[in-house]
Design a protein around this nucleic acid. Structure first.
Lengths: 135, 135
DNA sequence: TTTAATTCCTATTATTCCGATAGGGATATA
DNA sequence: TATATCCCTATCGGAATAATAGGAATTAAA
C-alpha cells in the first residue's frame, strides 16, 4: 500500500508541474486545491526539498517550485524518497538491501525469486515515467 | 512492503509443494525448516485453510497439505488472501476498491493513472506464476 | 481405553509505523 | 516594522503487524 505521504507528495508535484513559469507556490495553495492537511503537506514538501526535487523561497510570497523540467523528473527516485524501497522485500531491494533473518540461502528462496520479478516490472514503470507523463 | 504473514505463508506453501505425495505435514516441521515462529505460522496456515488453499487433518499424525496441484495454484489469489489488495492504492484495486477521500475526480488523478499501470504489471506476474513455477 | 500429538480457536500483548498536529524560529517582502 | 511564509523538532493517538498464550477438540497409536 502506498502511504499517504507518497500519494500527497506525488499530487503536490503534479500540481507544481501544472503551473506556468516557475513562480513559488505556497503550501496552502496546494493543500487547499488537493485536499491535503496543510501541516502534513508541509513536512512532505520539506523532504522533497531536502532531497533535491524542489526549491523553496522563504518569507512573504515564498513557496515551492520544481527544480527541473517535469520531463526530467522520473518516478523512481521520488518513490524512493517518499515511500522507501520499491521492492516488496528488503532482500531484493537495490537501494535498501537487507538480508532476511530467516532464509539461509537467498538464491534458493522462492519468495526472493518471485519478488525480483515484481520489482523489475515495477521499476520498469517508475524508471520510465516522468512527472510530465502524468499530466 | 510484503508482510511477514505473506512471506511466511508463501514459504510454507512452497514447502508443502516440495513434499512427495500429499501426506499431512505438521506445523512444527514447517516452522523449524523455514525458521518461522510456530504459533504465528499456525495462524497463517489456518487462514490458508479457511480460504481453500490447504486441507488439514487433526490429531496425531495430522497436519496440512495442498488441495490442488502446485501448477494450478496461482499467486494472485494467495496474495489477496494473505496480503490483501495487490494494487498500491484502494482506488485502483479490482477486488478491494475504495474511493479516495480527497480526489473529486479519479480519472483526472495522476496517482490513479500511474498506479493502474503498476497494478496491471504486477497482476500480470501474479496471475501467471504458479506455486510450481517457484520451485 | 488411555495417552500423546496435533490442529483449532479466541484473546491478548508488544511493538512499530503512520498520519496528523503543535508551536515557535528564521527569513524575506512590502 | 509588520506580516506572510517556510523551517524545524517534537509529540501524540491510533491502527496495523508480529507474536504469544492457553486451552478445546480431535485423532492415532500404545
Amino acid at each position: 500500500m502506498l502511504s499517504k505521504k507518497t500519494k500527497y507528495g506525488l499530487k503536490a508535484l503534479t500540481y507544481l508541474a501544472r503551473q506556468e513559469g516557475n513562480k513559488p507556490v505556497q503550501i496552502s495553495a496546494i493543500s487547499e486545491s488537493e485536499n491535503i492537511s496543510r501541516k502534513f503537506l508541509e513536512s512532505i514538501l520539506l523532504t522533497l526539498r531536502k532531497n533535491g526535487f524542489l526549491g523553496s523561497k522563504k518569507g512573504k510570497n515564498g513557496g515551492y517550485y520544481l527544480l527541473k523540467d517535469p520531463k526530467d523528473i522520473k518516478m523512481a527516485p521520488i518513490m524512493r524518497v517518499l515511500e522507501g524501497p520499491i521492492a516488496m522485500v528488503p532482500c531484493v531491494s537495490l537501494n535498501f538491501y537487507e538480508k532476511c533473518d530467516d532464509c539461509p540461502d537467498e538464491t534458493a528462496c522462492a519468495v526472493h525469486i518471485l519478488m525480483i520479478e515484481v520489482r523489475d516490472s515495477t521499476l520498469q514503470i517508475f524508471n520510465n515515467k516522468s512527472l510530465a507523463d502524468l499530466l
